[in-house]
């Protein structure tokens, strides 16, 4: 008995330790799951760099909102953002496959540039570009080489054929989504962390940190964001067993789908039935 108990205790302890370690090292996501992962670590002042949600693995709290960022640099056309100190988190170093393209995969020789930009079925790379075959962006009007540089595979390309780094996708996205780029520049669109003052230091989240450019429509919802797991619901008030009182069938108003007039007539019929029994109760319940 004792030995079993001890074993169980040891196992529990090991499990606890393991879970503590994994909680410390497990990467959490900042905005977009799968594209904005950070690993929690201790900052020089002893504060954790991020605190993550135990249920969903989302970052809930930043010890230093500028951790791991670099200056955003110039952007054209210049806007009010330049007054403040704008920093972004570089993404290029995370895109591991890009630098090896043209070296490792193609034995040092660059693949021949495509003849034209017209969409056609992808013959290769279906494994490393999982979104490529189900591109949900532009409703069929655009394809890979409208955004990706045909020869410099670690760059994006703008309307004039100039290459754009992966750290500043706004220069590319803005060529179609101009009004949104303007809003983003003025701080109305998009996420910022740091200081609220208009001339304060802010970390700017660039387009692809929140939106998946290959699946921006997100199906029929068309919200621009991938679906994520929500944080747990608030605790129910004491004594309440479930939240059925507020959950409506088939996601709508109570009696959704039943026209009001129909509901009224059925209610009137119910009243009439009650009147016919002579008492306020159903006759069957009295027996």
């Amino acid at each position: 008995m004792n030995r079993y108990a001890l074993n169980a205790l040891a196992v529990t302890l090991v499990c606890l330790a393991a879970s503590a370690v994994s909680a410390e090292d497990k990467p959490c996501f900042e905005s977009r799951k799968g594209a904005s992962e950070v690993t929690p670590h201790k900052l020089p002042n002893g504060v954790p760099s991020v605190k993550c949600s135990p249920t969903t693995g989302a970052v809930l709290w930043w010890g230093d909102p500028y951790d791991g960022t670099m200056p955003m640099g110039e952007m054209s056309p210049p806007g009010d953002y330049s007054k403040g100190q704008a920093v972004v988190k570089p993404r290029e170093d995370k895109l591991g496959l890009l630098p090896v393209c043209g070296v490792a995969c193609h034995n040092g020789s660059f693949p021949p540039p495509p003849k034209d930009k017209y969409p056609r079925p992808l013959a290769m790379h279906q494994d490393i570009v999982p979104d490529a075959l189900k591109l949900q962006h532009g409703r069929g009007a655009i394809w890979c080489l409208d955004c990706h540089h045909p020869t410099q595979r670690n760059k994006l390309i703008d309307n004039f054929g100039d290459s754009i780094g992966f750290n500043e996708p706004q220069k590319l996205c803005g060529k179609c989504h101009g009004p949104i780029l303007r809003d983003w520049r003025d701080g109305i669109h998009g996420k910022r962390t740091g200081e609220w003052a208009s001339d304060g230091k802010k970390r700017w989240y660039v387009c692809t940190e929140c939106h998946n450019p290959h699946d921006v429509q997100q199906g029929a919802r068309n919200s621009g964001f991938a679906q994520i797991e929500p944080e747990p619901a608030p605790a129910l008030p004491k004594g309440l067993k479930n939240a059925d009182h507020e959950r409506h069938k088939d996601h709508g108003t109570p009696h959704a789908g039943t026209p009001l007039l129909e509901r009224l007539t059925s209610w009137l019929q119910h009243l009439r039935k009650r009147g016919a029994t002579g008492t306020g109760r159903d006759a069957s319940t009295l027996q």
């Binding site: 900042e30 905005s31 977009r32 989302a58 970052v59 809930l60 709290w61 930043w62 909102p65 009010d80 003025d186 701080g187 109305i188 669109h189 998009g190 996420k191 910022r192 962390t193 740091g194 200081e195 609220w196 003052a197 208009s198 001339d199 304060g200 989240y205 929140c210 964001f225 994520i228």
Partner: peptide
């Protein structure tokens, strides 16, 4: 000077905060 915690955490950038008396602030815009 720092943003509120909810502004910083919003993964879709729906939350905006600033000085209403500053015409260049995000909220004023």
């Amino acid at each position: 000077g720092r943003y509120p915690a909810c502004v910083e955490v919003c993964p879709v950038g729906a939350r905006k905060f600033g000085n209403l008396l500053d015409p260049n602030s995000e909220v004023s815009r």
